[in-house]
Design a protein around this nucleic acid. Structure first.
Lengths: 240, 240
DNA sequence: CGTCGGGTTGAGGGTGATCAAAGTTTGTGG
DNA sequence: CCACAAACTTTGATCACCCTCAACCCGACG
């Protein structure tokens, strides 16, 4: 499917766009660019003049402290525009990096801004996407701030599962996750060693397994329970 | 000053609004409501039909886990609209509570939405406010995820100082902060006891003191350094 | 003057960090 | 196809930061 069709479909999950809105979005200029795994799409300090629509692959946003520690802030999947904020926040305050090889739809700010100015509903749909981002950040704060290690991991996996399903990827009993335990550690505010131990616990408890970049869900329901996962914050249900 | 004038002034810090935009904002219907300390403005699950502009006082957003632990997600001060997201995210995924007695300007969603649809620049200004919110969340993740306890506290205080200055409150050497050590603990992902100990360290090191809801800055520069504080993420500099 | 919320301090314990080493995959070049 | 290197995973031993529990103190306020 065309990248912009995917975007329309995604926005329509939460916003009532009419045919003209949809057409306008699909006429957005976009060119495809591929990035190798572990490469930077934009980094802190950049002033991008375009946004990156993920067509395929996994990416993450992260920051590095003055003491050299890395914190992953969010994981992004197909259909996400992780740097949409750069439309209105002109300098990047964090990095956007690929976790796997990615194909990215590059959309110039000019065109996006023109579109949002002429079509308020499209602006609202995109605005809402950035608000959902923020909601995910909030839950992420709770995760690293208040949950024990095993629950953090369980929560992260549960969130990813839910989001993958929302974009139509069936995670029935397993799904790809191109992250190392070091990446997971940086996402969870833990050390890689401890992630490994916690993983072992979840495996022994029959909740999940993780080998060679694939998550195998043994008991997704219990996993969500251990992680205290409640998908309200993803705001995926049709808007009422 | 009128609440809506304050809002205009705030938005103009980051966005070029013309006179008509400003007038349109100032014509927004708003009524003043006061909340006692420690009360809820909106809570998780609510579907608010209006937004809350903080005119005076301190508020915070927070979530409670299934195991009953509370995590404070952000602190809000005069000029903030902490639940601006509710304009487009219809059900609250967290609570908004007062930390001190607050006077709130209540603005109906209808009016706000009409304004953003008719005036794209106002929409962009408000959108940007929610994006800065998200930037603050991101830094908050780094704080609880990757910094040791003393640095977390130092960072939080440095952030508040910077934000208070941005709205014109001189924090020369001290400022009010209506939070208990328990509140701070919930903001930092620590226990109250440990916050107390860390506070003692910062006090003994001559960085800051905190008594009876006032922060006394002894060495703000060093405090920022200990907290690894860099204000880039607040996006306060005039937009270029 | 008594109560209550909040601050302070101490003792002991546990989760997760650190350090270290061995094992396993994956990929690469000969 | 094998040899080797690099990256990642796994495990063990030890350590420390922060938590828990508990007691006491202090100031505000009725």
């Amino acid at each position: 499917m065309e990248p912009l069709e995917t975007l329309v479909r995604r926005l329509r999950l939460t916003t009532q766009l009419d045919a003209e809105d949809a057409q306008a979005i699909e006429k957005l200029p976009v060119y495809i660019k591929t990035f190798p795994s572990q490469s930077a799409i934009v980094i802190e300090g950049d002033r991008p003049a375009q946004c990156a629509l993920i067509v395929k692959g996994f990416a993450c946003r992260c920051k590095t402290t003055d003491t050299g520690k890395r914190q992953i802030l969010s994981i992004h999947i197909a259909g996400d525009i992780p740097d949409l904020q750069s439309l209105h926040l002109h300098v990047m305050d964090h990095d956007l990096k690929t976790l796997s090889p990615c194909t990215i739809g590059v959309i110039p700010h000019d065109a996006l801004r023109a579109l949002t100015r002429s079509r308020p509903l499209v602006a609202e749909a995109l605005w809402r996407e950035t608000l959902i981002d923020a909601a995910v950040f909030r839950e992420w704060i709770v995760n690293v701030g208040r949950r024990p290690a095993a629950a953090r991991l369980a929560h992260l996996i549960s969130e990813l599962r839910r989001r993958l399903e929302a974009i139509g990827i069936d995670t029935g009993e397993h799904f790809d996750l191109p992250m190392t335990q070091l990446d997971l550690a940086d996402a969870l505010g833990l050390t890689p060693v401890h992630v490994n131990r916690v993983m072992k616990v979840l495996r022994n408890d029959g909740l999940m397994e993780f080998r060679r970049n694939v998550v195998r869900l043994k008991d997704a329901e219990k996993l969500a329970q251990v992680g205290g996962f409640d998908d309200l914050y993803l705001h995926q249900s049709p808007q009422l």
